[in-house]
């Protein structure tokens, strides 16, 4: 009797759990759906007083018109965003990967002091230092240049910290065997450690790429000229100006997030694994 009852209650609990998750999932998907729907609606349907779940007419001109509209420099800003995100991702993986390994493995007298100097900056959020960073970059004459948008973002203390944590957990025996074979630090790192760290590098790379593609405050401050706008700045300019076709603005946003959502769906498992492995939240 008791078993039957507990089975029935656990069935009810499971049903409740799935219902709650289903409602939550629908709520979380609605904004994506609205973006998709609005991107394929005609301007007059978007402006009509009635709410439409489906576009009365599926309008594809928004997409074809987007790249020929001189008011939105869509192609240029997508290209800028792609260059910035790719260079920053590769750069951060290279610079922070090397630094993380050096800090984790190469015995050096001042290693701990260097490490504390790096982690101290983690306590100072980058967004609060945008005024001083702007002052520096403007002194260098890097306003409205890709250099100014890319280079200051190459030195991520958090990525270095996480790489160090990851390499500390790397099996030492393998590296010692490589050392015995006379590979040295450089050879061991590139031939043994890097090929076995692809999953973790994929996690850091994905997070860096998304952060770079979606960055807003720094490109807003540095990208003054239209030629140096990222896709986020282009979208924001026309969102706050409201002088553009709204349906085309939605299409622009859809085009801007589509590559990212696709990449994210394929690479998210590495992020989940990376979080589990290093305990980014720490405990």
């Amino acid at each position: 009797m008791a078993i039957v009852r507990s089975r029935r209650t656990s069935g009810v609990v499971a049903l409740g759990r799935y219902s709650a998750l289903a409602v939550g999932a629908i709520l979380f998907l609605i904004p994506f759906y609205l973006l998709l729907r609005s991107a394929f609606m005609r301007e007059q349907d978007l402006g009509s007083p009635d709410f439409h779940w489906l576009p009365p007419v599926w309008e594809t001109d928004n997409l074809t018109g987007l790249f020929s509209n001189p008011a939105i420099p869509m192609a240029r800003s997508m290209l800028n965003s792609a260059i910035i995100a790719v260079v920053q991702t590769v750069g951060v993986l290279f610079i922070s990967g090397l630094a993380g390994y050096g800090l984790a493995r190469i015995p050096y007298r001042w290693s701990n002091a260097v490490f504390y100097g790096i982690t101290a900056t983690l306590l100072i959020p980058a967004a609060v230092t945008f005024v001083p960073s702007f002052v520096l970059v403007s002194t260098l004459g890097w306003i409205s240049t890709l250099r100014g948008l890319i280079i200051p973002g190459l030195f991520q203390a958090l990525a270095t910290f996480l790489f160090r944590q990851f390499f500390l957990g790397f099996p030492k025996e393998i590296e010692e065997a490589a050392f015995m074979d006379g590979l040295g630090w450089w050879g061991t790192f590139w031939r043994i450690v890097v090929p076995n760290s692809r999953g973790f590098a994929a996690a850091i790379g994905t997070i860096t790429f998304i952060g770079s593609w979606n960055a807003f405050l720094w490109p807003l401050v540095i990208g003054r000229d239209q030629s140096s706008w990222t896709v986020q700045i282009a979208l924001s300019t026309f969102l706050t100006a409201q002088s553009v076709q709204v349906s085309q603005l939605f299409m622009a946003a859809l085009v801007a997030i589509f590559p990212l959502l696709l990449m994210f769906l394929f690479l998210q498992r590495w992020i989940v694994e990376g979080v589990e492995r290093t305990g980014i939240a720490g405990d």
Binding site: P31, F32, N214, F250
Partner: peptide, 17 residues
């Protein structure tokens, strides 16, 4: 999934839709 979306795009959906 929304983690991959930018604040600008979310603002657009929230404000205009």
């Amino acid at each position: 999934l929304p983690t991959a979306c930018s604040y600008v795009v979310a603002s657009l959906i929230w404000k205009m839709s």
